[in-house]
């Protein structure tokens, strides 16, 4: 779902960098307000490695083929660390694996990072919104929602970016059909990532619950 170089016009790339800059500043400020800002760096670093590798894991969803993103998972588990983690992960993906590109780094970070922050807030609202559910179910359901919606919103942003930026010389109908096919392929992926997030969060809750207090 990474947007490579040369697909988007320069204004969109610049806007992506601007949004990424603001979001990074805001996330780092939130992190810096914690009593010990470095305490969560090991967790964030390991999940950045997971994010970096995840995009090489392909899942065939006929007729398309999608790969894991894990941005919702990072949001749920890392909180505000998710945005810098995704930015760093995307930078190395662009350089090493060739997913995405340096000009579209800002756009891609916005596309995956902002939904990750939303996923964090969805997960954190579990004690307010999900009072009716008993405790392990509540955490599991909200982790699932965070993981699935984080990816789903990112896929919608991707769809919108591509559809509104089809160059005039391309056959727009064919390109729209192709993008829609690919986006529909992300619905099962959202379920997979949501389930994966719920499993990981429930595991952490049992083994090391202090990791989830973001």
């Amino acid at each position: 779902m990474h947007i490579p170089d040369g697909i988007l016009p320069a204004q969109v790339c610049a806007a992506g960098y601007a949004i990424t800059g603001v979001a990074t500043w805001y996330s780092l400020r939130q992190i810096n307000r914690r009593p010990d800002p470095a305490a969560e760096v090991p967790k964030a670093s390991l999940l950045t490695a997971a994010f970096f590798v995840a995009s090489s894991i392909y899942i065939p969803v006929p007729p398309a083929s999608v790969h894991l993103i894990l941005n919702g998972l990072l949001g749920v588990v890392l909180g505000y660390f998710a945005f810098p983690a995704i930015l760093i992960g995307l930078f190395f993906q662009a350089l090493v694996i060739g997913h995405g590109g340096l000009t579209t780094l800002g756009v891609n970070a916005t596309m995956m990072g902002i939904p990750a922050l939303l996923a964090y807030h969805i997960f954190q609202s579990r004690d307010v919104v999900g009072k009716v559910l008993p405790e392990p179910t509540r955490t599991g359901v909200f982790a699932f929602l965070g993981g699935a919606l984080g990816l789903g919103i990112a896929a919608l942003i991707f769809l919108a970016l591509i559809i509104f930026n089809i160059p005039a010389e391309l056959n727009a109908t064919a390109e729209q059909a192709a993008v829609l096919t690919l986006s529909v392929g992300h619905i099962p992926l959202a379920l997979v990532e949501g389930t994966f997030t719920a499993m990981l969060v429930l595991f952490l809750r049992r083994v090391k619950p202090e990791l989830l207090e973001g």
Binding site: P42, S45, L46, A49, F52
Partner: peptide, 21 residues
Amino acid sequence: QRGITIGSVIWGFIGTALFFA
């Protein structure tokens, strides 16, 4: 070459985690 590069990047992340841990 790809494997070595990817491995180095992953080791960088793990090293960062170990350093801060």
